[in-house]
Nucleic acid binder design. Structure first.
Lengths: 217, 217
DNA sequence: ATTTAAATTTAGACACCTCTAAAAATTTAT
DNA sequence: ATAAATTTTTAGAGGTGTCTAAATTTAAAT
């Protein structure tokens, strides 16, 4: 597998509900910042390698083999992210770019030993689950803050948007994974929320609430 | 810099006495297991980028910029090797292949933080010196076991040949960096050596002695 | 149902890195 | 000093992954 092939597989996995749903050529092109014609070329190649199901004009999905491959790459990406944060003191908004490179390193032993060093983490720094060696993982029972009833109480366990901008915003406002959050009130006018986080009271926009996962306790 | 370019720079550095001496096209091709014509092409490109000095039929050497670049790559390679051995329990004969991949990861922050995590090591698992951030390093005062007078006593500090075969041989015979070695006797007939290593007496061939560095105490 | 718009694919091209085969330059040997 | 052998370079080509422009198919609109 070339680096480029791996990136396509990963993108199809993410866009197509873990590879199960058909993804359009244009969607892939946009996500990868390339041209649709390039996507068509690559998809043909991946199809020949039995990594994707492809019929002209019908979009692509991953085969079982493709899903397994994607899970391997995602496992590597997320383990490296944990490593960068836990061992090298990177902040959670700095890890993505480097992990994009590290995820392509080929060595089963390396990734297994890294897993051991990190003590078999189940989640990456953004709260996304890390597949185990066999590709199995489960997303803990989490919900978007915006979709939870008033008075709910829980722990902040993840972010949906893991862009640098959003993560830096959370840092600035002292919102971090592990924080205890209670929904105090929902402002119907602009769909914003008043929450209690730790001991503070905060007012957060709907956009923020729509990108924070909490696990109801 | 592409990965391929980096590999050429590294090879020219190693073959040409740290980049200072002219290296022949054929030598590079053989070392890199490619064809001389491919080397010529690449060397032209590196020349345009001011990384090497090149005149047709005259061989290549590194420019100052090329040397600096090579030292950066070597620093990364050797730091990763230390990481693999110290943190991930790789043995010293397993690290090279993986480090060959890791050395191409682009992130200054990553390598500086790795350096910190490892506590600024001066030598890699084979006893080779690790350049610092500015590219400066010095090889401690070491000598080949084969070139040291009888009765000399010192510490084993490195290997010249770091092939898997040689390293596994040393493991099998319980010879490791840090061991105290005394030359007991030189066998003139086959140029082999009788040595004391730790508390054991061993008989080692000239080929072994010619690939072990010791620091006389 | 036919036209219009959008999405997708094809065709042809280019940069990168490699190769083989042949030509040119250099070195070695007589 | 010239011929032979070796080294190095050039010329032409192939595979990968990308692009633009044009053609084709599908979806949307009237």
């Amino acid at each position: 597998m070339t680096r480029s092939e791996e990136n396509y597989i990963k993108t199809i996995f993410h866009l197509g509900n873990k590879g199960t749903e058909e993804v359009s050529t244009n969607a892939i092109a946009e996500e990868m910042e390339t041209k649709p014609s390039s996507v068509t070329d690559m998809v043909k190649k991946l199809s020949e390698k039995e990594l994707v199901n492809y019929k002209k004009y019908q979009g692509v999905s991953l085969t079982d083999f493709g899903i397994k491959t994607a899970l391997g790459i995602i496992r590597k990406h997320r383990l490296w992210e944990v490593f960068l944060v836990e061992k090298l003191d990177f902040s959670w908004d700095e890890v993505h770019e480097v992990a994009e490179q590290l995820e392509h390193i080929k060595s089963d032993k390396l990734i297994d030993k890294l897993d051991t060093l990190l003590n078999y983490p189940k989640y990456d720094p953004h709260g996304d689950p890390i597949p185990d060696k066999n590709g199995t993982f489960k997303q803990g029972n989490r919900k978007l803050l915006s979709e939870v009833p008033v008075e709910s109480k829980g722990i902040c366990v993840g972010v949906k948007d893991s862009s640098t901008a959003f993560l830096k915003f959370l840092d600035k406002n002292q919102i971090a994974l592990g924080d205890e959050i209670t929904i105090l009130e929902k402002e119907e006018f602009d769909s914003s929320f008043y929450i209690k986080i730790g001991d503070r009271r905060e007012h957060i926009s709907n956009q923020i609430a729509s990108n924070l996962y909490i696990k109801i306790s």
